[in-house]
């Protein structure tokens, strides 16, 4: 029989996986380039679309900057949660072989998944917090509502889990860019980050409504509970759980 201390430790078997990622993340944060690279794209969008184009545009009954900032937070959290997990996991699996240390440890595959996803969420939240700070000091009508916080957390969970799937499936590091170009890039532009989805033609709207980020953008801008909000919440939760289950299964079935 295992001693009590080991059984208790067994409940947190995801923690070493998370801690490892955080130690590596801390090292990255000490490099100025990382913080800059995490911020540069959304800040450029903010300046170009928000302060440039946005001065003469109103969107969904509000000024464009107030419409844009939540969308940029959603996009930034998606990009960072997804990309860091997909890229790091793929490199660790194929090139550095450090993933093998996790697979050969006596912890369940779901713990590896949870540790990686929580680490991806942390990175996504860190990157989006920088945009949130910009939003809070900008003249936009921007505040953090419970819908905003829920959408942000679920978005990070959903895309970090998707990042694990990509990291496990991509056969090379170049392959992760292909996944990025086909999945993440279209979502960034079509899912309601820069303009309301309602303005798109009906056939395209049907495709857009399947995209997970579309539902993040609905929830993150929600002002109260209604049918759309509940649907967005349900869709995001479903996507998150499905991606998490697939990622866990891929880790469980890992074989070289």
């Amino acid at each position: 029989m295992r001693p009590l201390s080991r059984n208790l430790a067994g409940s947190f078997t995801w923690y070493p996986v998370y801690l490892r990622e955080m130690l590596l993340f801390k090292r990255k944060l000490l490099k100025v380039g990382y913080v800059f690279s995490a911020m540069v794209t959304p800040i450029i969008y903010l300046l170009v679309f928000g302060y440039g184009l946005g001065r003469s545009v109103r969107m969904s009954g509000t000024d464009y900057l107030s419409f844009l900032i939540p969308g940029l937070v959603a996009m930034s959290s998606m990009n960072n949660s997804y990309s860091w997990v997909a890229s790091a996991l793929n490199l660790n699996r194929i090139y550095f072989k450090t993933f093998q240390v996790l697979v050969q440890a006596p912890i369940p595959p779901s713990s590896i998944m949870l540790g990686e996803v929580l680490a991806g969420m942390t990175k996504g939240l860190f990157a989006s917090s920088l945009i949130i700070l910009v939003g809070l000091v900008s003249p936009a009508h921007f505040h953090i509502s419970p819908f905003f916080a829920t959408a942000l957390l679920l978005n990070c969970f959903m895309f970090a889990s998707l990042g694990v799937i990509t990291g496990m499936l991509a056969k090379s590091h170049e392959d992760t860019s292909t996944y990025n170009n086909f999945i993440i890039m279209p979502m960034s532009f079509f899912s309601g980050t820069f303009f309301p989805v309602d303005t798109m033609p009906a056939p395209l709207r049907a495709i857009i409504n399947i995209m997970p980020l579309t539902h993040t953008n609905i929830l993150i801008r929600a002002q109260g509970f209604d049918g759309r909000t509940i649907l967005a919440l349900a869709v995001m939760a479903a996507y998150g759980l499905i991606f998490f289950a697939i990622g866990s299964r891929l880790i469980r079935g890992y074989s070289e």
Binding site: R6, V17, F96, K97, L102, A105
Partner: peptide, 28 residues
């Protein structure tokens, strides 16, 4: 297991590499 390839975490110290491994294997 000592693999043929060096699969240490290059950006972690020797102590951190071992500490993470000890946690993964629930070493007291």
């Amino acid at each position: 297991v000592v693999p043929q390839e060096n699969n240490l975490d290059r950006e972690l110290s020797a102590r951190e590499n071992l500490d993470i491994y000890a946690r993964l294997h629930q070493v007291g």
